[in-house]
Nucleic acid binder design. Structure first.
Lengths: 181, 181
DNA sequence: CTTGATATATTACGAGCCGATATATATAAA
DNA sequence: TTTATATATATCGGCTCGTAATATATCAAG
């Protein structure tokens, strides 16, 4: 899924500036399964604008750069729907933590414990945020479904780390005590 | 984690050619949380070789391009350990499927059902492979831990899809019957 | 009261990675 | 016989990421 389609997806939920689209990928409903940086968002918006898939409305602001509000055109909405009908490829996960933990027996047990504890805390924080506020729009069962999937997967990951941390530490020589902060 | 470190990690489990390293990322113990293509592996191996982190041994073959077997040098092993001590960033997930399913209410229910069924089947297949063959080396508790985590997360994902598929289909107007293949 | 951090807002650039393609050949299946 | 699959390496364009540059406002800390 390229940056252009991702931007169309965000804009389908309402008009937004490039900056707001970036925030949507950091905090919004797509944040746990897609990312996009300024370096891909702004060129994508320019291309979409040139192709007539989005409309731009410059909104002057006091003492700040003019905000460019992008909104979906009918043509853009059709392009999004067409992209949604394409067959999705397999998911891709990139986890430096799991790569590092693959070599746990070569690392100080205290450090392994710290890494796992930190990640458990991160998962719990994300879960609290995702379960607490409901940022999905009304009449969006798809978004609710995906949000539930994110929660289920994060919970499974946190639970696994909690249940098997001490076992791993025992195997690599840690006594499970020194990891306490 | 850049391509060079990834290659060092694979080579720490034994000497291999570029082609075999690619296969390790498709089928081996890293496959479910890291990817690498030829376009990143071969330049990485050249750079590692130039820096003395890996040694190359050309192995002629009958009627095939000569295979270049790369192996870790002591300097390379130190570089890997140093990289493992760096603080890992957050995990990144890219899922075109979840992006598409976010807009499920705009798609034909039959197609949504097909997409979910196909992904459940994919997860079950991966789980069977991961649970069946034990491709981790002996005395590698780190690899076992990571493998268990992959299994736990995949199982949670497959279970969620199975348990909530019909609910989603009902919400978007599908009757849950037409999706049967 | 001044410094620093955080937030809004866009653009540009270098580094790096992915996917596809080119090149060669062997084997097995259709 | 043709096609697909597997082995094996190299390269190239295009896309994306992370960072920095630019500009300003607000808020908190010292």
């Amino acid at each position: 899924m390229d940056a252009k389609t991702l931007c169309l997806g965000v804009l389908s939920r309402g008009a937004a500036s490039g900056y707001e689209i970036k925030k949507a990928f950091e905090e919004g409903p797509f944040s746990h399964f897609h990312q996009a940086s300024f370096g891909s968002i702004y060129p994508a918006l320019n291309a979409l604008s040139a192709d007539g898939l989005v409309a731009v409305r410059a909104q002057a602001q006091q003492k700040r750069p003019a905000k460019k509000i992008y909104s979906l055109t009918p043509k853009g909405r059709n392009a999004l729907l067409a992209a949604l009908m394409a067959t999705p490829g397999p998911d891709a996960v990139r986890s430096d933590l799991l790569f590092i933990l693959s070599f746990a027996q070569h690392l100080p047990p205290a450090r392994v414990g710290q890494l796992i504890n930190a990640r458990i805390a991160w998962y719990r924080e994300m879960l609290a945020r995702m379960e607490g506020c409901d940022y999905t729009a009304p009449n969006a069962p798809g978004a609710d479904f995906v949000r539930g999937m994110g929660i289920a997967v994060y919970r499974a990951a946190a639970d696994y780390l909690e249940r098997h941390r001490d076992e791993l530490l025992a195997q690599i020589g840690g006594d499970g005590l020194e990891v306490a902060e």
